[in-house]
Design a binder for these strands. Sequence first.
DNA 1: AATGAATGAGCCTTCATTCAT
DNA 2: GATGAATGAAGGCTCATTCAT
Lengths: 197, 197, 197, 197
Amino acid sequence: MARATDGDGQPVPQRLLAAATRLFAERGYDRTSVQEIVEAAGVTKGALYHYFGSKDDLLHEIYGRVLRLQQERLDAFADADAPVETRLRDAAADVVVTTIENLDDATIFFRSMHQLSPEKHKQVRAERRRYHERFRALIEEGQRAGVFSPRTPADLVVDYHFGSVHHLGTWYRPGGRWAPQEVADHLADLLMRALRP
Amino acid sequence: MARATDGDGQPVPQRLLAAATRLFAERGYDRTSVQEIVEAAGVTKGALYHYFGSKDDLLHEIYGRVLRLQQERLDAFADADAPVETRLRDAAADVVVTTIENLDDATIFFRSMHQLSPEKHKQVRAERRRYHERFRALIEEGQRAGVFSPRTPADLVVDYHFGSVHHLGTWYRPGGRWAPQEVADHLADLLMRALRP
Amino acid sequence: MARATDGDGQPVPQRLLAAATRLFAERGYDRTSVQEIVEAAGVTKGALYHYFGSKDDLLHEIYGRVLRLQQERLDAFADADAPVETRLRDAAADVVVTTIENLDDATIFFRSMHQLSPEKHKQVRAERRRYHERFRALIEEGQRAGVFSPRTPADLVVDYHFGSVHHLGTWYRPGGRWAPQEVADHLADLLMRALRP
Amino acid sequence: MARATDGDGQPVPQRLLAAATRLFAERGYDRTSVQEIVEAAGVTKGALYHYFGSKDDLLHEIYGRVLRLQQERLDAFADADAPVETRLRDAAADVVVTTIENLDDATIFFRSMHQLSPEKHKQVRAERRRYHERFRALIEEGQRAGVFSPRTPADLVVDYHFGSVHHLGTWYRPGGRWAPQEVADHLADLLMRALRP
DNA sequence: AATGAATGAGCCTTCATTCAT
DNA sequence: GATGAATGAAGGCTCATTCAT
């Protein structure tokens, strides 16, 4: 096989994905040209289209990566052997840390969904839905158990918390005032206090 | 004078702005062509460029409209003659209602900021900052007064709440499960409960 | 209005059509680039797409021109007040002369039909069918009247004659051995003799 | 030796040629990609370029196959020991049957000649010329012998008949109204009657 | 106040071909 | 004999903007 890596040691598809992620987050999907991506990755357009069917595929790949990671982590926390308050709090804090640690992915995730092809858009929405529902189930469990207030419908609580996660890309800057874990603790704290009976 | 309005009675610039708002929200700024805007508004390209210097100007105009409206409403609630809990709660609920009632504007606002020219982008950020600070001041006032818990830095509380406002465009659908006011009450409620000492 | 003609006095759309016709005949539709067409016409790509929706539209326009012309001429001869032998012979000779006089159009017509979009292809086939049927009706009229031999089904006779018209683009060269009218007389003669009872 | 055939038993070059023939006839030479050919043949690009120097070579091979076959058959009929009317009639009918039985080849032959490289194009024209001349000689022989009318120059007669052969790909559909032999008989019949003194 | 023809730069994608293995 | 990653050139098309009228 012809070499699929170069000086920096990473395979071509990964290099392309990394370049695309950075650029999509920086200037938006529509404002990033395929030319810019291949230049940043140090390959030619032909190479990109050898591995990806379209620019849209690149975006879809990024979505897949985010969805896989987040679902995996949520599942791990939700399945833990611990009281529901602990499980929810840990999951709520973890999604903040994970989002900050992959801020480019997250920025793209929330901003570019409608730039996917309709078909891929639908698929992503469906997977996102599964995630939402797992999180909601945790809240409802606590509400039924009486450890969380039942006043607010669990769906709204999920959207409240994920609004703040969604929003991180807008204001959080690495190296700024707060470490990721601090932000995570504060936001999880706000959620838990809002849910006190 | 040559007509500046047509059958539907609105002046040309307003018609253009209305068409642009709908289209930008529906398919994004970059995916909306000037041609589509003028067709939707029932005028020609020449007319658009007579009233607006560029496509970017249209977007900027929409930003101005949102910023003006939100600042105005926040100021009104924050200046009211009432206890700080009431003022914050009313402002927090009102921004939700106002956002839902202008969901296209809000969708554009949060999604298209980086598509403004750098100069206009900066200006919008500055105005947004003023808004953020007014809101934060309210929270800090309550924290100093001891009616809100001082545990979470006020800046983070503001971002927490505005995350959920930002997020509305993603999930809220008019005519769906909840009326605007219900959502507003629930979200303001969550905020107030999270702030309980 | 901005000028739609230039030094050579013809409007831009006509210039584009003329350039496209020459190039499509010379090197084929797929081998002719839009860039080459606009260069030959002395305009820019933007101008082409201002008047034509696609490269395919240009081709379709040429088809329309040929179909209109041929149908018009066939109708004129077929409707004439003369014996059927005369009407058929005149029509058969005329289509040869007209084809030779518009040899580029004809070359494109017979060679590029399958390069039209499926929808336009269908439409062209339908109009071509009408033409074929008018011609066939003339032959059947003569067969019923006993002035033409009924041995060969009229459909096949039409295809026989049109095969030779179709073929002209392959071998006929202006300024060569035969004048258009001579070829037309010979080919019409062959048809009439083949039809003798 | 490594296999040069696979499950379907045919050697790789033949499989490639068969796939190319079908695809070229179906959608045209320029619209068929090398990738599509190798997929249809169930091999890889490397294999194609191992056996053929270029895409153009495939086309040339198809031309060679058609030319060889037609010349062979014409020679057989023309050299037969029979009266000239019989020899011409048989040759004229045979080329129709042979063309119909290899309709893909014929479609490609008449439609794609200008897509050969200039050099190969010239070579094919030369071989085609030889074929034309052999056919013409037959007609001139009959004209000199007085069994065919001398009114029409033999060259034009050849083009008249071959126009109809050329045209077969446009309208003939296997399994349609006429069997190949019927069409051949009718078209040869038309030719012979047109040549009656 | 408004038109709409025309520009020119750039966009995503395709593709025949090469070559190290 | 055969692979398939990679190239590089070109292709059709879009679009914000300008400008003579």
